[in-house]
């Protein structure tokens, strides 16, 4: 037995398993099979990227946060303001959104990661609230409660135009998600990733064996914030609009629910969670809006009480049972 898959272990085999290509194949199949769903599809891809960034700090490093929307929203606003005022080139926009969000993550991380537990949780909340209020009040720059729109993104590399059906936008998001996935996967399988797992499991021991715990946390927090910023930038680019919702507590909460639903600390929980949650929301919330949050709440209780590993945890257990049954 070598522990669950996708942990930063000195024993795990870092090669990509055949199953790990499945999400990408499915994503491409959707592109051809469901062209009318591509706006929703793009949003799902963006939320997967966002959830992946959260998984890195929450699932691997054990940093509990209710404020990850700060970096997503910051990236989204930076991308929008840049498009309005400086350049509407998408790749430059993503780079700047990612770097700015990473910088914000680094600066805030330096302060808040000295804390742990509930204090840390409150601080992450506070940071999001502050960002929200700034975006709300600085109307000249952000459009305040009306949001910021009215800009048109230039074609990617001057070649691929954003279209109404989001065909380009979908592939654009998919590409960035793929790069982020590759990066996160590398990190998780590295010694750095293993040390993050160590910090999550037993921070006192990590200190005692000479690990620079705080610096490690700041580093991973910065990376995660940058990825969240990229996700935010993608949302701005594909919708050509940004509103206060991207900095809301609701978004941080929804994100957390999606990740827990999919399974925390296993990379692909960040894929499964948003897909299930957002597809369910798309079909159910329209028909039974009054029951949606009740349903989500109930589901969350069930997952937390009976299926700690989320949907992927359940799948793991089923597979294990089938395998045992065969031998």
């Amino acid at each position: 037995m070598t522990g669950p898959a996708h942990t930063g272990s000195y024993l795990s085999d870092p090669r990509v398993r055949p199953m790990e290509w499945l999400p990408w194949v499915l994503a491409l199949v959707c592109y051809f099979a469901a062209p009318t769903y591509l706006p929703l599809g793009s949003y799902i891809l963006i939320m997967i990227l966002f959830a992946l960034s959260l998984d890195l700090i929450l699932g691997y490093a054990g940093i509990i946060t209710l404020g990850h929307a700060a970096y997503f929203g910051f990236g989204a606003y930076v991308a929008a303001i840049l498009a309005v005022r400086v350049t509407a080139d998408p790749l430059i926009g993503i780079a700047v959104a990612g770097i700015s969000a990473g910088l914000l993550g680094w600066l805030t991380g330096l302060v808040i990661l000295r804390m742990r537990g509930l204090t840390l949780l409150m601080l992450t909340l506070a940071i999001t609230s502050i960002c929200y209020e700034i975006a709300n009040k600085a109307t000249a720059l952000t459009g305040g409660a009306d949001g910021l729109g009215g800009f048109n993104m230039k074609p990617i590399l001057g070649l691929f135009k954003f279209d109404l059906f989001n065909k380009t936008g979908y592939l654009y998001c998919l590409l960035f998600l793929f790069v982020a996935w590759w990066l996160v996967r590398r990190i998780i399988y590295s010694p750095f990733g293993a040390s993050l797992t160590g910090i999550r499991e037993n921070v006192a021991r990590m200190h005692a064996l000479g690990s620079p715990v705080y610096q490690r946390l700041v580093a991973v927090y910065t990376i995660s914030a940058a990825l969240a910023g990229v996700a935010g930038g993608l949302l701005t680019h594909t919708t050509e609009f940004v509103g206060l919702k991207v900095l809301s507590f609701d978004l941080s909460g929804d994100l957390l629910v999606m990740l827990i639903l999919g399974g925390v600390g296993r990379i692909y929980g960040a894929f499964v969670g948003p897909v299930v949650y957002l597809l369910a929301q798309d079909s159910l919330a329209k028909q039974f809006p009054e029951y949606w949050y009740f349903g989500i709440g109930l589901m969350l209780v069930l997952v937390v009480m009976f299926a700690r590993g989320g949907i992927l945890g359940i799948v793991d257990r089923l597979l294990l049972r089938i395998r045992r049954g065969n031998t």
Binding site: P191, F192, A194, L209
Partner: peptide, 23 residues
């Protein structure tokens, strides 16, 4: 072995490595 490797990697100064797989 991971329990021990965490300590050994810190001592070797390689625990910051982010891109090469730990193994």
């Amino acid at each position: 072995v991971d329990n021990v490797s965490l300590a050994v990697a810190e001592r070797h100064g390689v625990a910051w490595g982010m891109f090469r797989p730990a193994g």
